[in-house]
Design a protein around this nucleic acid. Structure first.
Lengths: 182, 182
DNA sequence: CCCCCATGTTACCGGTCGGTAACATTTTAG
DNA sequence: CTAAAATGTTACCGACCGGTAACATGGGGG
């Protein structure tokens, strides 16, 4: 879906189906034969992003099996890398959310459910890592993750990514010390 | 500027100047006699929001003069209150940023400069409060602030606001303990 | 009273949008 | 080779957009 690049660069409302078709190396007619409307096209694009991210989490889980701290740390590093590759325009999902004011838009539901799953995942990891207050830490991580995207537009994506990694590392380290002491 | 409510509810691109004029209890012609284009209307709206926020900071500074911790804590509480009053649709500035893909849009510059000032303010406060690593803490606060807005759409604005307050309180408290011990 | 100036009204402009109809063309499969 | 399915082309539709021109209205101050 090369259409996604256009959506991300010029905003969902800022790109017409004609341009989408061209980016997909086809034309408007055939596009409409595959997707009945622009809205389902948007939804499918969002669904793809979400699926990709969740695939990434599965990979993370497989690579650091039984090591929740490692998962959290690697996750922060991957996010930092994504931030670095983003540069200038913000998060695709965040922007899409802002551009779809209708709370009943199917794409919105997809994003919402994804965010909920992601947050639960972090809570579970914090619990498994033995953080003294897993809800607290998970909320902090999730808010930082979300914030990193908007924040990077002013502080710089590179710095913000490094900082995300730094915070997660520090909290994991503190937790380890705390467990060793207690 | 009642137009702001429309911008926030339906998105900048989702509301036409006709609707704006109607919301302002006038008509399109008179509107264009005051604002030469929709873009400067948008920019002026953004400028108003930014001015309001910076006014709030001045008030904060006056109320807790010489008490940087108090300023940070009160700031988190005010932000939490704003989040509580927001509910459903996200941050006005954040959405506006997402809806204006052109990096040279004047409204974008206004927002960017505001964000930079806000971040510097937090850095200065963290320095004044004697945080061991002011840049670190300030980045954390700023990212949390930004994140709270996007995050609230899934976790719930009330919870996220409470959590923002909780994090700031905890960090201030930790810092106090650290200073008392060191 | 009368003039002026701000406001309101209506109609319009060119452009773009999402989406469709009809038809030409190419690819694929039997 | 031929028939059918997929894809491409063009033109069009109605709706809405930001923005403007021409003109009607009204009210307040000299």
């Amino acid at each position: 879906m090369a259409a996604g690049d256009l959506f991300h660069k010029h905003g969902i409302r800022g790109v017409g189906v004609e341009a989408i078709a061209e980016a997909a190396q086809t034309n408007k007619m055939t596009l409409y034969r595959y997707f009945p409307s622009k809205d389902v096209l948007i939804t499918e694009w969002v669904r793809g992003i979400v699926a990709h991210k969740e695939e990434d989490w599965k990979d993370l889980n497989a690579k650091h099996r039984g090591d929740p701290e490692g998962q959290l740390q690697d996750w922060s590093r991957r996010t930092a890398a994504q931030l670095r590759a983003m540069e200038e325009r913000g998060s695709a999902l965040g922007n899409a959310f802002a551009e779809l004011p209708d709370p009943n838009h199917p794409a919105r539901r997809v994003m919402k459910e994804h965010k909920l799953r992601a947050h639960k995942r972090v809570v579970r990891l914090c619990k498994a890592a033995g953080f003294p207050d897993p809800a607290f830490s998970a909320n902090l991580f999730t808010m930082m993750l979300e914030g990193a995207h908007s924040c990077g537009t002013c502080v710089g994506m590179r710095q913000i990514g490094e900082h995300l990694v730094q915070v997660v590392d520090r909290m994991v380290e503190n937790n380890r010390r705390h467990q060793a002491a207690g």
